[in-house]
């Protein structure tokens, strides 16, 4: 069985990456994401994957990152082959969209592995966005591990009832997932209602002014990290535009 529940879960370590302000890390992944989505060059995607791997090693969570990469490898392969096969393009052109998925996953995994959900919600609160948005967003994040665990439980239960996930052609394989999807969706909707009610009975007031428990502040480290990464993205963009590498 896949161990889905350990993916994307915050790993507590005492490294430079962990000490950075969540806002810094978030802005950096935003910059990278925009670049990854727009860049037509697979070489730059590989460079980004390598960069985030190096950062993951420095943050002592490389193995966790590899686990998420392994999980998305099937999707990577499907996108790679689909692009290669259906559009009859050469392999280099098929590599760009498939590596795009992989590089997005590494960048986001790095963020989630090094940022505690609490720090992240504090940072969101401070961003000035309305609480309805920031709260739903940080709750969604906090529930990722629960959700993964839930999927795992449902999978185990249905497999114990004789469900074979890898049986048949592609279409029937997709259909095999219906007995897993339906319970997971129903349970998630039920839970979201429960969570909302629990928040309300504990006196959550969306209009009240809030004060964070944990103070976060940008330090010189954050500005250096931000500047360095912006520089890297600018350089990569320049390379893509002026050198036109594949």
């Amino acid at each position: 069985m896949l161990k889905l529940d350990a993916l994307f879960r915050y790993v507590e370590r005492d490294t430079l990456m962990h000490k950075l302000d969540p806002r810094t890390k978030f802005i950096v992944i935003l910059i990278y994401s925009i670049f990854i989505i727009l860049s037509p060059s697979y070489t730059t995607q590989i460079i980004i994957i390598l960069l985030s791997s190096i950062l993951a090693i420095s943050a002592k969570c490389f193995r966790n990152m590899m686990r998420s990469v392994l999980t998305v490898t099937p999707f990577f392969l499907i996108i790679l082959f689909a692009n290669y096969y259906f559009t009859r393009l050469d392999i280099t052109a098929a590599l760009t969209p498939s590596l795009r998925i992989l590089s997005l996953v590494t960048v986001f995994t790095l963020f989630f592995l090094t940022t505690s959900p609490d720090d992240f919600s504090t940072a969101l609160d401070k961003s000035g966005l309305p609480l309805t948005i920031t709260l739903s967003f940080s709750l969604a994040l906090k529930f990722i591990p629960t959700m993964m665990q839930q999927i795992n439980e449902v999978m185990e239960a249905q497999v114990a009832r004789g469900l074979k996930l890898d049986k048949g052609n592609i279409l029937s394989r997709i259909r095999n997932y219906i007995p897993i999807l339906i319970p997971v969706i129903i349970l998630s909707i039920k839970r979201s209602i429960e969570v909302a009610e629990a928040l309300e009975v504990r006196g959550l007031d969306l209009k009240a002014k809030r004060k964070p428990i944990v103070e976060t502040s940008m330090s010189w480290r954050d500005y250096i990290y931000l500047a360095l990464n912006t520089l890297i993205v600018v350089l990569l963009t320049a390379i893509v535009i002026y050198l036109a590498i594949p």
Binding site: E153, A157, A160, R161
Partner: peptide, 21 residues
Amino acid sequence: SIYDLSRKVALVFQYPEKMFF
């Protein structure tokens, strides 16, 4: 395989009613 074993051993998890579809 889990499939062959499940044929012999039925495992009913806690709160099995959550798994209906």
